[in-house]
Simulated assay, not measured.
Amino acid sequence: MTNHLHKNDLPDGLDFGRAVAIDTETQGLSLVRDKLCLVQLSSGDGDAHIVQMDRNAYDAPNLKALLLNQDVTKIFHFGRFDVAIMQRDLGVDTHNIFCTKIASGLVRTYTDRHGLKDICKELLGVDLSKQQQSSDWAADELTDAQLSYAASDVLYLHQLRTILTARLVREGRLDVAQSCFDFLNTRCRLDLLGWNDVDIFSHRMRRPD
């Protein structure tokens, strides 16, 4: 496994094939307060490409072109946050999405544990370390431990997608999963506009107490 660190954008000519796993790191989990720091990507070959963003410009034409490319499937875990933060800071919608957390929620109905660590442990026998989860991702120089943690969030998503897709087919829920993936950009726009805690489909649109 090799981690490739890139400053500000992906290099020219980098080809991830027909599917790319993507994750992000920010200073926190607020779509109002916290900026995008890293974007991690993998083609599923065991290598990770980590883009350390310029938080003053977000001028990343190669990364943006990849996100917009409808011929490439983008695999996320909890894409709702990653897609939203890239909508906000990169100014682009991400097309052709598969979210392993949504897929897990639709087929692993025997549990309420749908975090990446839980899914990797059950489905792949991989025990992910979350030691660097709370970390200064805006640092000018990232440690090897930070890079390894960031990479681990994308290295297994291709395998999870394969397993979860088979289960979606088995349970007859692939169509509803695809509808959820297609709706994700709209869900993210609602989050960014302030409807993150409001169910607009409910008869009574109340915020939770």
Rank of each mutant, 00 (worst) to 15 (best):
L155E: 01
R173F: 06
H114E: 08
D144M: 09
D153F: 04
I163Y: 03
L68Y: 01
G79I: 04
I102M: 09
L106M: 14
L10I: 07
L5C: 05
R170F: 08
L123Q: 14
L160D: 03
D136Y: 05
A60M: 02
P61Y: 08
S148G: 15
D127N: 15
A60C: 15
L160K: 02
C120W: 03
L174S: 04
R33S: 12
V169N: 10
D127W: 07
K130F: 09
V20Q: 02
K101L: 13
K130T: 14
K130M: 13
T2S: 14
L29R: 09
G115A: 10
D199G: 08
K74E: 02
Y110Q: 15
R18W: 04
D199A: 10
V51E: 00
G13R: 08
F16A: 02
G44H: 05
G44A: 08
P208M: 09
V20N: 00
N196L: 07
R170G: 05
D112I: 05
D136K: 12
A57Q: 14
V176S: 14
R189L: 12
T109V: 14
R55L: 10
L157M: 09
I22W: 00
Y149H: 08
V51T: 03
F16P: 00
T94A: 14
G115N: 07
H6K: 07
D112W: 06
D34T: 09
I50C: 04
R206G: 03
G91R: 07
Y149Q: 04
L124N: 11
I97C: 03
L160Y: 04
F76I: 07
T165W: 05
V154S: 02
T2Q: 13
H114D: 07
N3T: 14
S134T: 13
I75Q: 01
A103Y: 01
D140C: 05
I102T: 05
T162N: 10
G125V: 11
F98I: 02
R206C: 12
N185A: 13
D34H: 15
A150S: 11
D153Y: 04
Q27A: 12
Q146G: 08
D118M: 06
I102F: 04
V83Q: 02
R187A: 13
I50K: 00
T94K: 00
G172M: 10
K121A: 15
T143W: 06
V107Q: 00
F183L: 14
K117V: 13
Q70L: 03
N3L: 06
Q40G: 11
V169H: 12
N69Q: 08
L193E: 15
D34Y: 09
K74V: 03
L31M: 12
L128S: 06
I50S: 01
A151L: 06
K130N: 11
H95E: 13
P11F: 11
L36V: 05
D136P: 12
Q70D: 15
I163K: 12
C99H: 01
N69G: 04
I85V: 15
G194C: 10
L5N: 02
S135F: 08
L193D: 15
T73D: 01
L184W: 02
G172P: 04
